Amino acid sequence: MRAVVTGFPNATPLPGLDDAWHWTPAPGIDFAGALSADGERLLQLSGRDSYDRELATATLMFARDREADIFRHNPHFGAAAGFVAPPGRTFDVVAGVGAEVHRFYRVENPDLTPLVRLTFPAYADEFSGGETLDEAVTRYRMLRMNNLDRAPVPYLKMRYANTRTKSRSANSGRGFAEPRRLLEEIQLLEGGPGSFVEFENRHHQVWRVEWHDVHLLAEWEPDAGAPREIQLEELLSFAERSLYV
């Protein structure tokens, strides 16, 4: 593995971490990688126009020490808490992505693919811990992990139907979405009798918002009592807060 990595174009040792390297295959694209503790795998991080050597080193060091914890509950897509990011950064976990999700090197070096685990700094509110393989692939694409300057993209599943705009979810179940979409759809409920928005956070808490006459109602599930009237401003604030927990 060491010979493979040191053979990458422009590969140089990563300061501050043994058995770790940095390489740049193209301008603006940076990779950093470290051997796993047993030397059998490559833990790899990427940055596109956002590479930060201090952050990369801290992430890879944590990933090497806590690799088992990252993948303990989910071999495809996991995260471990306790990460202390460098000053100025707010990441609070390090996440890992299995080969069946990322499929790196499948063209140029397919034998390497199963030996690579992608790692990246992330936020706890982005993971439920129970993502299926298909869900892991979707979240991997949504998180844009090579942007090391990114804000959180919290775990959110939602479904909706709007009788006024005639728009609705593409399928019957809740699907992944970004927070802005949730807030937009909630605001569009007004004036649409029978319209609803249902949303779920990483703890699998589910809420349903409906429009009846002139009232916005928030319904907590499961069996948390009757829906209550709630003003739009309060509702939007509650919906957003519920995702960052």
Rank of each mutant, 00 (worst) to 15 (best):
106 R>D: 11
167 S>F: 04
79 A>K: 09
92 D>H: 06
78 G>Y: 05
112 L>P: 00
166 K>A: 01
103 R>D: 00
70 I>P: 01
160 Y>F: 14
167 S>L: 11
185 E>G: 09
160 Y>A: 01
118 L>E: 14
136 A>G: 09
105 Y>I: 00
119 T>P: 03
114 P>W: 13
167 S>C: 05
109 N>R: 13
153 V>T: 15
74 N>V: 13
137 V>K: 14
149 D>T: 03
78 G>S: 10
66 R>M: 11
150 R>S: 10
86 P>D: 06
136 A>K: 01
86 P>I: 00
99 A>K: 00
147 N>Q: 12
67 E>F: 12
110 P>I: 03
79 A>H: 15
144 R>L: 12
172 S>I: 13
116 V>A: 02
176 F>P: 05
115 L>S: 09
69 D>R: 06
109 N>T: 12
92 D>L: 02
90 T>N: 13
106 R>T: 14
74 N>T: 12
175 G>R: 13
72 R>E: 12
145 M>P: 08
112 L>N: 04
66 R>H: 15
98 G>K: 07
109 N>C: 04
174 R>D: 00
182 L>Y: 00
122 A>S: 15
137 V>M: 07
136 A>Q: 09
168 R>S: 06
83 F>A: 05
68 A>W: 08
170 A>G: 15
130 G>H: 07
150 R>Q: 08
125 D>C: 14
84 V>T: 09
72 R>P: 00
69 D>P: 14
100 E>A: 14
151 A>E: 15
123 Y>F: 15
100 E>N: 02
93 V>K: 02
139 R>N: 07
110 P>V: 14
76 H>R: 04
68 A>C: 07
124 A>Q: 04
74 N>K: 06
74 N>Q: 03
182 L>S: 08
77 F>L: 02
129 G>M: 11
123 Y>E: 01
73 H>W: 02
169 S>T: 15
104 F>D: 06
84 V>R: 10
144 R>S: 12
111 D>F: 12
139 R>Y: 08
181 R>Y: 07
73 H>Q: 14
163 T>W: 01
159 R>H: 01
84 V>G: 02
149 D>P: 05
155 Y>K: 08
115 L>F: 08
141 R>H: 13
87 P>V: 02
76 H>E: 09
108 E>N: 12
66 R>L: 02
171 N>D: 10
85 A>P: 10
136 A>V: 09
129 G>Q: 05
175 G>W: 04
152 P>W: 03
82 G>I: 01
157 K>P: 13
181 R>P: 05
103 R>K: 11
129 G>T: 14
87 P>S: 13
102 H>Q: 10
84 V>P: 07
100 E>V: 03
139 R>P: 05
171 N>E: 12
89 R>P: 08
73 H>V: 08
117 R>I: 08
104 F>L: 12
127 F>D: 05
123 Y>Q: 10
182 L>D: 04
151 A>N: 11
